[in-house]
Amino acid sequence: MGTSDPDSPAVDSVTAPPVYGRHVAADGDSFVTLALRLGTTTDTLSALNDRTAAPLAAGETLRLPKRFAPPAHVVASGETLYSIAGEYGVSARALRTANGLDTTALEPGRRLRLPGREAPEVPPPGDWAVPDSTGAVAVYPDAFAGRLTASGTPYDPDALVVSHPSLPYNSVVLLSRPDVGRHTFARVLDRGPIEAGTLLDVSAAVADRLGLDADATPTVELRTVWIGDQK
């Protein structure tokens, strides 16, 4: 038996450790900045904390995705406190204390905290998770202005909008050119890209924010910030 998947559900919600991570908000934290640091989305953090993506108060304790929870072990049939302690190289006393056990008997399905095993650290401010995807982008042709997109919304060159092959309409992405310090948020309203070999199509406004030259195709990083509810 190995360490269980920390994303698996707890059987006993009263005595088992939480199946989510925790983070104490600092000044300047928001669901958007945390999502970028954690490699998740703002709608995920909103759902975990049962609130909208409003400003966060310093000192507020937030729930994080389950992969940021401390490592744990789910008891299998036939396992004992001593066998589990031996498997992880900890004392039975430490394992018992960490889980507040008043007996050495264990029920299958129970989730146990592992002494000395810490949750993954939350990246510091400004340290974003790896992008969801990278690639060159194409700018919508000027002739597309006013044409209906796949979502039914007319294309406006002055709007911060993009196409994407699969993200639901109204999803929000962050596009970045870290080499020149250019970033912009944009909303998905179309399917694409039009040109093969490109990551997505972007409006003239997005291209301007990113400092894209019409004759060049620099690499752009894409991070999903919010997943929309329209397919």
Rank of each mutant, 00 (worst) to 15 (best):
A10R: 15
S13H: 13
L210R: 07
V24S: 14
G78F: 09
D156Q: 13
G228A: 15
D213L: 14
G197S: 12
G116A: 11
L148C: 10
S163R: 06
P168C: 10
R113W: 01
R93H: 05
D229Y: 00
S171E: 00
P71F: 11
G78D: 07
D201A: 04
Y20S: 07
E107H: 14
T41V: 12
T52I: 02
R117P: 00
L48H: 10
R51I: 09
F68N: 00
T3V: 14
W226N: 03
P165R: 13
A186R: 10
P157L: 05
T33F: 07
L174W: 01
I194Y: 15
R67M: 09
V161H: 02
L101W: 11
R22L: 12
V202S: 07
S163D: 04
V202R: 11
W128S: 05
A145N: 09
L36Q: 07
S151W: 10
G89F: 05
T80K: 01
T104V: 15
D7Y: 08
R22G: 01
A35G: 15
H73E: 02
Y20R: 13
I84F: 04
T33E: 13
Y155S: 06
L106H: 00
P125T: 10
L45M: 07
A25V: 02
S77V: 08
P65V: 05
K231Y: 09
V130F: 01
M1Y: 09
V188D: 06
Q230G: 01
A138S: 15
L175S: 09
Y82W: 06
D7L: 14
D142I: 14
A204N: 01
V173P: 09
G152I: 13
